[in-house]
């Protein structure tokens, strides 16, 4: 048999059996080496704790900036929240192994539900900046519906934004209510396709309409 395709080798490394590929790898040192490398990546990934890696609390940056005597504007938290490429439409299961079976079944159901033609897609928001909060967002026609749990009580209010980190553009939609819920209308003239992400920030009551840079939840805008 000729060398298997890279696709098939990857599937074998993940444990999908294939007699043809297995037989070839058994007699081909270079494919066997490749398979070992892929398996070791799979093993590490399966043991990884795939929680988000949120930034530490703001005080940590403050300490760095103070210690190094940074000048503005390097010191300022960027108004466009950083860490591009962090949309997390795939809510990763935290469990690995046998105990994950239930979670596995549930997440498949979630995927199917999200893909289904009837249910409006609900997408989880990821916590940022050391917050323990959780959130979900649904796009209902031109309304962005945000549900949150566990946002800490704080001075100020929680504002919902549409974000395009690539272009550094954002639109303020409005504030969450006291229960951490918001149903916010997207202004006419705003093209939803232009904004891949939804962001929730803590805004001080200082009369400044710009983003505070203090994002607590973020996730992709459901399509």
């Amino acid at each position: 048999m000729p060398h298997p395709s890279e696709d098939d080798l990857a599937l074998l490394a993940l444990g999908e059996p294939s007699d043809d590929v297995g037989a070839h790898v058994g007699s081909c040192p270079s494919c066997a080496r490749e398979l070992r490398a892929l398996r070791s990546t799979v093993d590490t990934a399966r043991r990884a704790d795939l929680t988000d890696l949120p930034l530490p609390p703001a005080a940590v940056w403050q300490r760095i900036a103070d210690e190094l005597g940074l000048e503005e504007p390097a010191r300022a938290r960027t108004a466009t929240p950083a860490r591009p490429g962090r949309p997390t439409p795939w809510r990763r299961p935290l469990l690995v192994g046998g105990a994950a079976l239930l979670a596995a079944a549930a997440s498949v159901v979630t995927v199917l539900a999200v893909r289904g033609p009837t249910a409006p897609p609900e997408v989880p928001l990821s916590a940022l900046g050391g917050s323990d909060a959780t959130g979900r967002v649904v796009l209902d026609a031109r309304s962005v519906v945000v549900e949150t749990d566990g946002l800490p009580e704080a001075d100020g209010f929680y504002e919902v934004w549409l974000l395009d980190l690539g272009e550094g553009r954002m639109v303020a939609l409005g504030a969450l209510d006291d229960t951490g819920h918001g149903r916010l209308t997207v202004p006419a003239g705003v093209r939803l396709d232009d904004y891949p992400e939804v962001d929730v920030s803590l805004e001080p009551d200082d009369g400044d309409p710009a983003h505070s840079g203090d994002s607590v939840l973020r996730g992709p805008l459901p399509g």
């Binding site: 444990g15 990546t41 590490t44 990884a48 795939l50 890696l53 997390t88 990763r92 992709p220």
Partner: peptide
């Protein structure tokens, strides 16, 4: 790996997640 996963393209992340973690 967790950091690299978070930066995969969404469809790759979803496919890999289902194959890796949900078996």
């Amino acid at each position: 790996v967790a950091d690299a996963m978070a930066r995969l393209r969404p469809e790759q992340r979803q496919a890999v997640g289902l194959a890796f973690y949900d078996g």
